[in-house]
Design a protein around this nucleic acid. Structure first.
Lengths: 219, 219
DNA sequence: AATTATTTTTAAGCTTACTTAAAAATTTAT
DNA sequence: ATAAATTTTTAAGTAAGCTTAAAAATAATT
């Protein structure tokens, strides 16, 4: 399966999420920055391979097989985003761009290794669900903002919902990274501050931060 | 620059290393598993782009530009190998295969981040030098087998020269991973054993192991 | 040095993934 | 419901990166 095909299938999947009628060749063409003619062409080829259902002038629909393909690609994309986010100081925008390329050159084996390394996360740093190797998606999000976390419990950071560079600089300076483990030592309810410990350091965060740092209970 | 071009340039670089006469279209074709005709064709195209010097029936030679391209690809390949080796339990063979794909989808920025994360290593786990971002290669290898390391000093693991699965299993069970730091606490010269500490654990290794584990002084 | 064997090059052709332009169908607006 | 606008499809064509088969040049052998 070529990169062109993978991107085509992914675009149908993504466009279809928001609106079933958003998967006509023209819509997909726009998403991929190709001509409608090229999209119709590809659609007919993929129909012959039983990856999509194609009927003239109708929205494109993924077959079971096509859907599984899309989920595999989405999985790899989100695993890469999660890994790069954890390891490197890169903007979410940069990380997305890199993952967009790497996702197509990733064996199932490597995807498994990345997932394992990250503790088989169910959500990526954006909060988007990561399909498992079978293509199953967990839709129930058990994470919560740090402000809602309980005193004395251990948590794993699951998202940092911000695009602000200063916020990320602060986070990386304090090991507040996706996948890292923290202990919540105190919730100062009146002042809306949270005291946590991470790597034997204790820091106190105000609600600006604890509302955009999402965590999962560490069981 | 397409994947086909990058692989072509890399093949000329690699074949040329061993023998300047080993870069005729036929040699490159074999390395890339394509026909000689395809190689000649590509050679003519790359000559037009000033990436190689092409003269009929002569070995292909990289221009300055082509050489820099090759070094950039080699750099990315070896950085990926180093990273994957550090992070995951994968055979060197698997790691090579993955790196072979990822190297072509890696921005200069990402390469920098990987390098930085690894501490800007000059050699990969195979012991092959990693060119820096300018394409400069360090040829002086300062690493040594662990058996030659000095008592009381700190070292960084730079290579694990083996293809034996059991050896790697032992290593990963004991945090003996590429890039990790160890302390040499004792060299038992008569019995050829070495006592090291890593992550607050102390282990004693015999010379079968200390001769294939290479380290660099940790300054 | 001449013949044979090998390698390289040229030539013609194929597939993939596009493009633009025109024809056909659908959708929107009145 | 019909005309106008938009979208989709078809048709023809292109570039990249291959293939095989034959011609041309080089290298090896005697």
């Amino acid at each position: 399966m070529s990169v062109a095909i993978e991107n085509f299938v992914k675009a149908i999947y993504k466009n279809g999420k928001s609106n079933t009628n958003n998967t006509k060749p023209g819509n997909i063409a726009k998403a991929l920055n190709i001509s409608s003619a090229a999209a119709t062409d590809m659609a007919q080829k993929l129909a012959a391979k039983d990856i999509i259902v194609y009927q003239k002038y109708q929205p494109l629909k993924l077959t079971e097989k096509g859907n599984k393909m899309a989920l595999t690609i989405v999985r790899k994309h989100r695993l890469w985003e999660s890994l790069l986010f954890k390891l490197f100081d890169l903007s979410l925008h940069d990380i997305h761009r890199e993952a967009e390329l790497l996702e197509h050159q990733t064996s199932d084996l490597l995807a498994e290794k990345i997932s394992e390394y990250l503790g088989n996360p169910k959500f990526d740093p954006h909060g988007d669900p990561i399909p498992n190797a079978n293509g199953d998606i967990t839709t129930v999000d058990t994470s919560m903002p740090l402000s809602k976390a309980s005193e004395g419990k251990s948590y794993i950071i699951s998202r940092l919902l911000s695009t602000d560079k200063e916020f990320f600089d602060f986070c990386s300076a304090n090991a507040l990274k996706y996948g890292n483990t923290i202990q919540v030592s105190k919730q100062f309810t009146s002042s809306k501050m949270t005291q946590i410990s991470i790597n034997n350091n204790t820091i106190v965060l105000n609600s600006d931060f604890t509302n955009i740092i999402y965590v999962n209970e560490n069981n």
